[in-house]
Nucleic acid binder design. Structure first.
Length: 121
DNA sequence: CATATGACGACAA
DNA sequence: ATTGTCGCCATAT
């Protein structure tokens, strides 16, 4: 099987699982922490392939611009907005204030999961 | 091996 | 603030 591929997605999902409630992260940010610099689109790919019923907080991942990746008005868009608001993340005109809600992992936090940030081999 | 695709991102007009 | 272009990276055909 494609072990490398699955590992990549696993890493991405694991990283997303670390986003604390009430905060969000951009696709690029997740990619970087997961060890795939410039791999924002890969995060999108991984999310799109999320197994049903997974507990990964996919809705905490948004575009770097603060926008939700889904088309405004779409069901997915509504669902994501709903979940975020429920956690206390304010959405103004379909946009989120990154300055305020962007997840900023601490060094300590990263040290707890070294494999997520420093796996190069 | 060549193209097309996409839950992205940075930047120029 | 908006919109269009081009760059990126792994997959799918």
């Amino acid at each position: 099987m494609k072990a490398s591929t699955e590992n990549r997605n696993e890493r991405i999902w694991a990283t997303i699982r670390d986003i604390p409630e009430g905060f969000v992260a951009s696709y690029g940010q997740i990619a970087e922490i997961a060890g795939i610099p410039r791999g924002a689109r890969q995060v999108g790919y991984a999310l799109r392939h999320l197994p049903q019923g997974s507990k990964v907080p996919w809705y905490r991942v948004i575009q770097a611009s603060g926008n939700i990746a889904f088309a405004p008005g779409s069901d997915a868009f509504k669902e994501q907005s709903k979940r975020l608001k429920r956690e206390g993340v304010a959405i103004r005109s379909g946009r989120i204030d990154m300055k305020k809600y962007r997840w900023q992992p601490d060094l300590d936090e990263l040290l707890w999961k070294p494999t997520a940030a420093w796996d190069d081999e």
